[in-house]
Amino acid sequence: MALLKLEDLHVHFPIRSGVFKRIVGHVKAVNGVSLELKSGETYGLVGESGSGKTTTGRAVIGLNEITSGKVFYAGKNLIEKKRTKELRREIQMIFQDPYSSLNPKKRVLDIIAEPLRNFESLTKQEEQKRVQQLLSQVGLSQKSIAKYPHEFSGGQRQRIGIARAIALQPKLIIADEPVSALDVSVQAQVLNFMKDLQKELNLTYLLISHDLGIIRHMCDRIGIMYKGRLVEEATAKEIYENPQHIYTKRLISSIPDIDPKNRGKMMALREEVKRDFDEKYNQYFDENGLAYDLKAIAADHFAALPGEGQ
């Protein structure tokens, strides 16, 4: 059974205008997304800014209101049921910016203990012990407990954010651009660490990123989002080596190649893919500019290809 399942998820934001601020339309940030996360896997959600990837993640954790559709967590519909305490502790989030997501006026102890205080009643000693244990789990020294966020580097801050996220032993972590504010060497550290932690705690990740290198490195399966809909979903290898949708092709071909000898080849490829994209755009999207529904084209490979709809 899937740990997390989204069925036809819609998140629409109203656009208001005029003297009385009446609703004149909607921004369909997420416009019919269905996907499944298996327990213990890393699912990558990729797309440009404005594609709806972040909104999808925030909707799952309850930070954006869901317009319609279903979100099942371990078989339970999160929309019909009020999110129980149990559910809220099992899904946690890691935020993008380690510089602004930690309250600068709080000590590390208070930051990490905050979720514990909300969900568990521990004595001061128990709480301190748990926080110290979490600190050693994320590889920070015990002395950190009394320090403030500004005393740490970016990578260390992101570890504090991760310690806070795993304090309640969650099963699902939604990581929204967890390393995009960090330098490459620090980024490598945090990514390795997230992988280790996943093995250790059997975590499931929903990883949201625009960096296709990171997605390739971390993910088992990948969903490509464009204008609020999924255009392709497959294993990481399939997406990178055998993309089917014109948007996926465009995205993959845009990644700068690390080998300067391929420069000419890449430029020609990009040129060709772009021409293809412009020519076939109307074929791949319906009259409202929306991607078609995903269709299976192989085991574990789905693409929103044109053709008779279901």
């Binding site: 490598a188 296709l212 290898k237 990178y240 690390i258």
Partner: peptide
């Protein structure tokens, strides 16, 4: 060594 590549999959990234 520390950059994750989109072209092939490394098990672990090198950390300075």
């Amino acid at each position: 060594q520390s950059v994750p590549s989109a072209f092939d999959k490394q098990e672990r990234l090198y950390v300075i």
